[in-house]
């Protein structure tokens, strides 16, 4: 079992994920298998918590506040300045492209009103990564 694709974690919270993994672990007999499963658990839950963090940042008015301009599933009273953030995996298969849009939208569109979150240090690199992890669940 390899790294779990993040889009499969869509409706699974951090805690549920750990419990599900723990349950499946009990039926594994070989200690090797337990070690491997343990490694998968760590990486999958790390991503799950990054997704949670990314969502928090995207909704928080004092942080990413992406909702101010974008419709995002589950977000209350979104703005309509930018396009709805949907089907991100299909529309942004290249993670670097998505990162570039969030890091500095004015590089692609000099007139963009979107905040150059990375270039202006409104969000840290780690925070942007969390937001991207979250975006890929949309």
């Amino acid at each position: 079992m390899g790294r779990m694709p993040i889009y499969k974690l869509k409706f699974v919270s951090h805690k549920e994920e750990i419990m599900r993994k723990a349950a499946s672990n009990t039926i594994l007999k070989s200690s090797l298998a337990i070690i491997i499963a343990g490694m998968a658990l760590v990486s999958a839950s790390a991503i799950a918590s990054s997704v949670e963090e990314g969502k928090k940042l995207a909704f928080d008015r004092k942080q990413g506040n992406c909702l101010a301009c974008h419709m995002i599933e589950g977000g209350i009273s979104p703005g309509d300045i930018g396009p709805p953030l949907i089907a991100m995996k299909a529309r942004f298969p290249d993670r670097a492209k998505l990162r570039a849009q969030i890091y500095d939208a004015t590089a692609a569109n000099p007139e963009s009103i979107m905040i150059p979150f990375g270039r202006h240090k409104a969000l840290s690199d780690a925070q942007i990564d969390s937001i991207i992890d979250y975006m890929y669940t949309l």
Partner: peptide, 16 residues
């Protein structure tokens, strides 16, 4: 952002 970003380019749209 400039004044014109919000009150020209995006005027009429919703910010939240």
């Amino acid at each position: 952002m400039s004044c014109s970003h919000c009150h020209m380019q995006q005027s009429g749209r919703h910010l939240r």
